[in-house]
Amino acid sequence: MRIPNIYRLGVKELWSLVRDPMMLVLIAYTFTLSIYVAATAMPESLHNAPIAIVDEDGSPLSARIISSLYPPHFKPPSMVSLAEVDAGMDSGQYTFVLDIPPNFQRDVLAGHTPALQLNVDATLMSQAFTGNGYIQQIITSEVSEFVQRYRSSAAAPVDLVLHMRFNPNLEQAWFGSLMEIINNVTMLSIILTGAALIREREHGTLEHLLVMPVTPTEIMLAKVWSMGLVVLLAALMALVFVVQGALGVPIEGSVALFMLAAALHLFATTSLGIFLATLARSMPQFGMLLVLVLLPLQMLSGGATPRESMPALVQNVMLFAPTTHFVSVGQAILYRGAGIAVVWPQLLAILVIGTVFFFASLARFRKTISQMA
Rank of each mutant, 00 (worst) to 15 (best):
S254V: 00
V255M: 14
A256C: 02
F258A: 04
M259V: 07
M259T: 04
A262I: 02
A263M: 12
A263P: 01
L264G: 02
H265V: 04
H265Q: 13
H265W: 06
L266C: 07
F267A: 06
F267N: 05
T269C: 09
T270D: 01
L272V: 07
I274A: 02
F275N: 13
F275R: 12
L276M: 15
L276N: 04
L276G: 06
L279D: 04
A280R: 10
A280W: 09
R281Q: 13
R281N: 13
S282G: 13
M283V: 06
M283E: 11
M283Q: 10
M283W: 08
M283Y: 11
Q285A: 13
F286W: 04
F286I: 02
F286T: 03
M288T: 10
L289C: 10
L289G: 08
L290V: 03
L290N: 11
V291F: 14
L292V: 10
L292G: 13
L292I: 10
V293P: 02
V293H: 12
V293R: 08
L295V: 15
P296S: 11
P296V: 08
L297Y: 05
M299K: 06
M299S: 12
M299E: 12
M299A: 14
L300Q: 01
L300R: 06
S301V: 12
G302Q: 06
